[in-house]
């Protein structure tokens, strides 16, 4: 059994002011070189897991329980500065919306090299050479010009390529991709997914891939966690999730996805009975947590 690079154990989080749970005893492991899919509908807490790892949770949300182990060290036990250095050196994020993730008033070049010069202490020149090489690796023609461009001068697909290049710049061991293709067209989406897979294989990175699209999960993930209301309802190899889903909710997520090759198959929304059963399960979990805490 390969040692997990990232291991989340029993992670719970809630909105501090009102006590609403956001994550409910989430556990998952990502082994080196693996793509782990986090899938669920909006509000399921899938992005929150990525943010918890990166230390980017909104201030209003507090972690109440659990551990996040990165290469054998618990991130939640560390001092802020130490944690920041480890996260900056070992992990990176590919965000959903490249336009808000890039600073509109700075050129692309310095935005790509920031992490290299600030956290890894590289010399400016060396960082620039590295950034140029990466822009070539993400198939950007004329990378010199792109380095001197402002974000608004690039197309949506180009901006996403720049952020992917920036994510791989410091050779991180783990990349959290938070819905990186949701804002893109299908054809561009496919190019970007292919690009992420290529770079991941080349740099031997692990990937935590957050998405709501079961189709995308099927194409790029090896393992999958299905989330509902901050709880993992099913976790398994992607192959068995799709051939033989273990949970009724997983099955109905797959069935609710329209397919052009099966136009006459009836399209079923998630059965309310399944949702009620899940709500009951979650209420039971919350009660047990309550008694354990109290």
């Amino acid at each position: 059994m390969t040692e997990a690079f990232l291991s989340i154990e029993n992670l719970s989080a809630r909105v501090a002011a009102i006590g609403t749970p956001i994550l409910r005893s989430v556990s998952l492991k990502v082994i080196p070189g693996e793509t782990h899919g986090l899938v669920g509908e909006s509000g399921a807490g899938k992005s929150m897991i990525g943010k918890a790892i990166m230390g980017l949770l909104p201030r209003a949300i507090e972690i109440t329980e659990g551990e996040i182990w990165l290469e054998g060290r618990n991130l939640l036990d560390m001092k802020r500065g130490e944690r920041r250095r480890i996260i900056g050196a070992q992990t990176a994020i590919i965000p959903q919306d490249p336009l808000t993730a890039l600073n509109p008033s700075r050129r692309i070049g310095p935005q790509m090299t920031d992490r290299l010069t600030h956290i890894l202490g590289w010399a400016e020149r060396k960082a620039q050479v590295r950034a140029l090489g990466l822009l070539e690796e993400v198939h950007i023609r004329d990378p010199k010009r792109v380095m001197h461009s402002y974000p608004h001068e690039l197309s949506g697909g180009m901006r996403q390529r720049v952020l992917i290049a920036a994510a791989f710049a410091a050779e991180p061991k783990l990349i959290v991709a938070d819905e990186p293709t949701t804002a893109l067209d299908v054809t561009v989406q496919k190019q970007i997914l292919r690009l992420i897979a290529e770079l991941k294989a080349h740099h031997e990175t692990s990937l935590l891939f957050v998405t709501h699209d079961m189709g995308v999960v099927a194409k790029i993930c090896q393992r999958v966690s299905v989330l509902f209301s901050g709880r993992i309802v099913e976790q398994n190899e992607a192959a068995s999730i799709f051939s033989n889903p273990g949970h009724a909710y997983t099955k109905s997520l797959i069935q609710a996805t329209p397919r052009y090759d099966r136009p006459d198959e009836s399209l079923l929304p998630v059965d309310p009975a399944i949702l009620e059963a899940l709500d009951r399960e979650i209420a039971t979990h919350d009660r047990q947590q309550g008694t354990a805490d109290g």
């Binding site: 054809t187 292919r194 189709g215 099927a218 194409k219 992607a238 051939s243 797959i254 397919r259």
Partner: peptide
């Protein structure tokens, strides 16, 4: 044809990406 080929259907297909 390209538009159609780019749609990820929810089923495992190792060849799709390449």
């Amino acid at each position: 044809r390209n538009l159609l080929a780019a749609i990820p259907l929810p089923e495992i297909d190792d060849q799709w990406l390449s």
